[in-house]
Design a binder for these strands. Structure first.
Length: 139
DNA sequence: GCCAACGTTGGC
DNA sequence: GCCAACGTTGGC
């Protein structure tokens, strides 16, 4: 079965793609928003996750692979937070900015564009096609 | 730094 | 359980 693609946002001041490069594998935790959790819980091993820098940079900066099933974040006492293990596959040399994504007008129905506060979401297949065409070799 | 758009909390 | 007030996120 084909891998699904998701997108996860991070504030680079808290955890950046540079940190991820050092770690290679990281626990992606702290997700509590019910809408975002829906996507975390749907992730399967070998699915792909775009890493997105929010807060200023606003761009997709890399691609990771899901290495574990979703699990309840042991560090969160409320039991409402879930986490997942991610392995970095690639840090992009040229980030795919939100500006460019918006300027194509192809993805106006994508949550990334119209629901800015959502931190984890799925990625439409059309976006993958567009990325492969517009940024050859990047993924 | 501002503010829109959400999410969360707490009084009733 | 409702909803006003407050807090947080993230684009600009």
């Amino acid at each position: 079965m084909k891998n699904k693609y998701y997108l996860a946002k991070t504030d680079p001041k808290t955890y950046s793609i540079e940190d991820f490069k050092q770690d290679k594998i990281t626990t992606w935790d702290g997700v509590r928003n019910p809408q975002a959790l829906k996507y975390i819980k749907a992730m399967k091993i070998h699915d792909r996750v775009f890493i997105y820098h929010s807060m200023g940079q606003s761009a997709i900066v890399g691609l990771a692979e899901v290495k574990s099933k979703p699990f309840i974040d042991p560090k969160d006492k409320t039991g409402k937070s879930w986490a997942i293990e991610l392995k970095l596959l690639k840090a992009f040399s040229k980030p795919i900015t939100l500006k460019i994504i918006k300027s194509t007008k192809l993805f106006s129905t994508w949550r990334l564009v119209y629901q800015s506060r959502l931190s984890t979401m799925d990625v439409p297949p059309e976006f993958i096609t567009w990325v492969k065409k517009s940024f050859p070799g990047i993924i």
